[in-house]
Design a protein around this nucleic acid. Sequence first.
DNA 1: ATTATAAATGTAAATGTTTTCATTGGCTTT
DNA 2: AAAGCCAATGAAAACATTTACATTTATAAT
Lengths: 325, 325
Amino acid sequence: MISIKDVAKESKVSIATVSRVFNSPELVSPQTRARVYSIAQKLNYIPNYSAKTLRKTIVGSIIVLIPDVSNVFFIDIVHGVQDYAESRGYNVLMGRFNIDNFNVEKYFHLVKSKAADGIVLATGHDRKYPALSVAKDVNISSIEEPYMNNPWVYIDNFEAVKKILDHLLSKGHKRIGFLGFKSERSRFMAFKKIIAEKDLNYDEDIVKLGEELAEDMPKSARTYIEYVIGKRKIPDAIVCASDVLAAGAIKWIIKSGLKVPDDVAVTGFDGVDIVNLVTPSITTIEQPRHMMGMEAARVLINKIEGKDFEEKVLLPTRLIIGESS
Amino acid sequence: MISIKDVAKESKVSIATVSRVFNSPELVSPQTRARVYSIAQKLNYIPNYSAKTLRKTIVGSIIVLIPDVSNVFFIDIVHGVQDYAESRGYNVLMGRFNIDNFNVEKYFHLVKSKAADGIVLATGHDRKYPALSVAKDVNISSIEEPYMNNPWVYIDNFEAVKKILDHLLSKGHKRIGFLGFKSERSRFMAFKKIIAEKDLNYDEDIVKLGEELAEDMPKSARTYIEYVIGKRKIPDAIVCASDVLAAGAIKWIIKSGLKVPDDVAVTGFDGVDIVNLVTPSITTIEQPRHMMGMEAARVLINKIEGKDFEEKVLLPTRLIIGESS
DNA sequence: ATTATAAATGTAAATGTTTTCATTGGCTTT
DNA sequence: AAAGCCAATGAAAACATTTACATTTATAAT
């Protein structure tokens, strides 16, 4: 391993000067700068990361934590985090946590051991995660929900659901059902509230808020569809809390001989690729996932570097009208 | 920041003893061990990662690189890498590279600067990436294709395509088309070879190997379908090189009034979630993505730790028959 | 009781940087 | 020519560990 010492010796300067050549070149004369630089090049010198971070207070890397479900939604967020972090000179470590256990202590320890400077917690669910004592003194930002007084990035679920319902109402739909998981409760609450405000009648039978199993999405959709058809309580539109759920619903509606959107309209939520791969394509709310990641990284790094603290960042959503409504 | 010194002082032992309590507890007497341990606990002592890795030769983290397309395929690989790496005590950093540029130097530098011990290159494409001089002396393992004499993990594309074709032939299909991207050339070669072996006639018009744009999948599928229908050269089965492409093909076949699988059967490749979300569900080849990640991590870590070197690891695939054939 | 052996602990070097403070030498100002 | 200043560089401390080697203490063997 070739170190700063070797470069110093070969260049006939002190190690301090070599260090300066790389970190504050303006402090060293153009001649020595050039000489040291070319010798470093020649020797293939690469500064040791550990030694560097041992000396400095900021390490230069952050962790992004995503739920352990294989969902493109979170990749785009990770990409956003990476793109922004890199622009500020940070590396990104990606970690996963079990959505039920919230087994994140390990990552908090990494920050405490100064292997990283902070954490972006990409929850993407309206869930109150337990406050952990180990999270004290750890720089954190989160997506969708706040975590322990840390800055967060979110979208306005109420407004988004309102966009969907306004769209459906404008198409003349009257009996509107809802299909979602507990983890998407805020979208459900928005749905209920708006239905009440609009004086539409709310029918328990066509509203389902399932359990927490993301794996079960297609099956949940199937259960729901079979239930409402069995009870002959078919809604004329179904608001789904995610695109995957909407895709599942569409699949089972078609299987049972009904037509989408003629018999039943269906809407999704998220705006992932799948909306254009199924037939009919899905009307959905596009979430700015990449930007969510960027912004979460931004508020986190600002916090790490002691810059202007932002409590929360609201990002816009967009209604995309597909063939399913 | 509370360091090993503080624990040593409070415990009235030397820092060496404290270090031993954590790294080789058998070397210290049970009494001191217990005392030091509880004091460390009380003081909330967490060993500094940089100092630790500065002293040791192995850092304890690896990098997994995936192409910058938002594709669940790679997430599962990353998960596999993480699961295995964690079992061996390694952290996992995730990085992305542009599939055309192959802009990975940055990550190789991270390894050279000892911020990580090695790299899993999750290419997932049959592509020869350029040999980089900076990759010398960097521990690497790759998925799908070998990279510069490093160990790699792969599936048998020929055998997989053969499974698909045998299945289609057993269903009586005769005019079989192919739809894929250049990056899936080995599947295409397998297709051609098997078609020749089986004495089926090969029709240029129903075979398309598109350009390198992953984004364009649905559009490519559309172009293909419209072309063969326009030419009245409709195949009775289409082998697609990925599930996403298959989903796109199905969508456009249905749009043009034909039925899947009655008029045209369609098969995919990969076995991602989408195969069960579209109608009809897609017949596909399941790749053991999680295991691919695990194995790639295993051969890499073995190499890092100087254990038994394996040149390559072949993993099995499985034909999953859906409704599309 | 003496010696040998093993177990437990301590001392200090080594890891590769950054950075504070000190020194040198050239240049300007009087 | 003396004094002051600034630019360029160096010496050494500091960062927090691990570990080779040395020392002390306890235990067993003679």
